[in-house]
Design a protein around this nucleic acid. Structure first.
Length: 278
DNA sequence: AACATGGTCAACCGCAGTCGC
DNA sequence: TGCGACTGCGGTTGACCATGT
């Protein structure tokens, strides 16, 4: 009757990923892409379930991911988007190139929630906290740093209908799924602080074989980033390209052949550093 | 120095939505 | 149209690390 488990539980490894597993997965996905996550672990020679592979890839291994804490601008944008979308982390993440839903969710729960509470703002409703706690919280907020985030939220609190127009996000509020219609530069107010050029192509650099890079912005950032990472930005759909040519030594039809290839060895000589990437 | 506590974040779980047959 | 397979999402957990006592 019930659903089949997403994978056979027996023999499936759980817990933290090892560097070797990461390498196998990255190598496999970069050379083959994924058509069916269920098959990925088998073909890549991993004792993981497909779900786990997908999660690892999307949350940690994707080359277009930014690492590190969210900037002030990103935080403000998250708060703004959360006010509009609620806990739709994937939708929020879609507006933050290079950030994952998991990362944003974690950051929200650990940092932003507290910040808002300190400021007397209910992180759920984005309205004022209950009267009993508000005075203390407000006092705290005034004593400490009440930067633009406060102003951001005050605007939201005053009139939720204004939220949509704030920061040029009207389109965001109107339509959930039209990411392409929102220019990356508009949804990313921190172009100057972009930590990874690959992030410029975030959303377009996806293993799901369907997206296309949006040219000009990506190119501009790519120009500032020497090395093979440029390839991510120049190709319409990372998985459509012939990765075998880049990852020399990777067989196209035999996963076992590629498992021994060190992806990062290829990049090391060209300014693409595993440590930086990670 | 040892232990306790709290914070952070990667990973897992289960449900819901979508797609193909 | 219904059913099963698969993917994606959001909530939650637990391990690890930093800080305080």
């Amino acid at each position: 009757m019930g659903r089949q488990p997403c994978c056979e539980k027996i023999g499936i490894k759980k817990g933290p990923w090892t560097a070797e597993e990461d390498q196998k997965l990255v190598t496999f996905l970069l050379s083959h892409g994924h058509c069916c996550w269920r098959l990925v672990p088998k073909l890549a020679g991993l004792l993981r379930c497909g779900k786990s592979c997908r999660l690892r890839w999307t949350n940690y291994l994707r080359p277009d991911l930014k690492r590190g804490l969210l900037s002030e601008e990103e935080e403000a944008l998250v708060i703004d988007l959360h006010a509009q979308l609620g806990n739709r982390w994937s939708k929020i993440a879609a507006r933050l190139p290079g950030r994952t839903d998991n990362e944003i969710k974690n950051h929200w729960n650990t940092h932003i929630k507290k910040k808002l509470k300190k400021m007397g703002i209910d992180p759920v409703t984005h309205g004022p906290l209950a009267p009993a706690t508000q005075p203390l919280a407000l006092a705290l907020a005034q004593q400490r740093d009440p930067p633009q985030v406060v102003r951001e939220e005050e605007r939201c609190d005053d009139d939720p209908s204004k939220q949509a127009s704030s920061q040029g996000l009207a389109a965001v509020a109107d339509e959930d799924d039209d990411v392409e219609e929102t220019p990356a530069s508009a949804a990313q107010p921190h172009g100057a602080t972009t930590t990874s050029p690959a992030s410029a192509a975030a959303g377009s650099v996806s293993p799901s074989c369907s997206s296309s890079a949006s040219g000009a912005d990506a190119d501009a950032d790519a120009a500032a980033w020497p090395g093979p990472i440029d390839l991510f930005l120049e190709v319409d759909g990372i998985m459509d390209m012939d990765w075998a040519g880049i990852l020399s030594g990777c067989g196209d039809d035999d996963a076992a052949d590629i498992s021994g290839v060190d992806l990062f060895d290829h990049y090391a000589g060209d300014g693409f550093d595993e440590q930086v990437w990670m």
